[in-house]
């Protein structure tokens, strides 16, 4: 009888616990739903803001750029030497700012346009190689493309990712040394791990995290061209594929950029 009473009591406590837990789950679900809605709204506001900011900036910039070019074209040599120089600086800066704004707009668009598909990385990298044929020819670079997998991802973004990494590898090469870029992939337990290895100038360990932030430049623009957004693009693309990106490098001895792309089938 005592045992029966004890079981009854335990059962009643367990039932009460279930009720409390159910109430907690409901409260938490409601809370998560509200904060999710809130985040979506804030995200839309941010997208809207950056779209308007970058889009509206383009117009006056285009005007500055066109009129400074027009000015240079019509009045070059008619004013003093400084005037020509100042106008060139205005024109170049306006051009650079247009490139920055365009890159910002591209950055915002990552992941918005398409759905995931099967992406043959080897085909993508071959296409990137063909797009970069001019710089490959000029620098005398060699690209060693290993066996690359077919993954599930955003094709346009994956292409941009390889394009950024390979063109960085070609850009930051040592003077009088032909760039050599090796692209490979290995299968890890739940993802693919890609490596883009170069024999370039390398990156100081103190900068190795900073390089993935928007508009971070480590080098003077006159030495290496660019807006400083390429690796931020890469990070955003890798994030979109639930992966990670990092670099292993020794200054003066080349860099290897690694990134992982999660295989959704294993999740």
């Amino acid at each position: 009888m005592n045992e029966l009473e004890s079981y009854k009591k335990k059962l009643s406590v367990a039932e009460e616990k279930v009720k409390i837990l159910e109430k907690m789950i409901e409260d938490r679900t409601r809370e998560l739903y509200t904060s999710n809605q809130d985040l979506q709204r804030k995200n839309q506001d941010l997208e809207q803001f950056s779209y308007i900011a970058s889009h509206d900036l383009q117009e006056p910039l285009r005007t500055i750029s066109s009129f400074s070019d027009l000015f240079l074209h019509r009045y070059k040599g008619q004013l003093d030497e400084n005037a020509d120089k100042y106008m060139s600086i205005i024109s170049n800066s306006a051009l650079r700012m247009r490139a920055l704004v365009k890159n910002l707009m591209d950055y915002n668009r990552i992941g918005l346009t398409q759905a995931r598909t099967e992406v043959n990385c080897e085909t993508v990298v071959r296409e990137v190689e063909s797009d970069l044929a001019d710089i490959i020819y000029k620098t005398g670079a060699t690209l060693d493309i290993g066996e690359l997998p077919v993954i599930n991802g955003y094709e346009m973004e994956i292409r941009l990712l390889f394009q950024n990494l390979v063109s960085n590898a070609l850009k930051f090469h040592k003077s009088r040394k032909k760039p050599k870029v090796e692209i490979s992939a290995t299968r890890e337990s739940v993802c693919w791990k890609f490596a883009v290895k170069d024999n370039g100038i390398g990156i100081d360990p103190v900068h190795q995290e900073k390089i993935f932030l928007v508009f971070q430049r480590l080098h003077n623009r006159s030495v290496y061209e660019g807006t400083g957004i390429g690796l931020a693009h890469c990070k955003k693309i890798v994030d979109l594929h639930q992966g990670e990106i990092w670099v292993e490098s020794t200054l003066g001895q080349g860099s290897t950029f690694y990134f992982t792309i999660m295989d959704p089938k294993t999740l």
Binding site: V13, E16, K17, I20, L21, M24
Partner: peptide, 8 residues
């Protein structure tokens, strides 16, 4: 008063 539950 009520029984203790893990997330409480």
């Amino acid at each position: 008063i009520e029984p203790f539950v893990g997330p409480g």
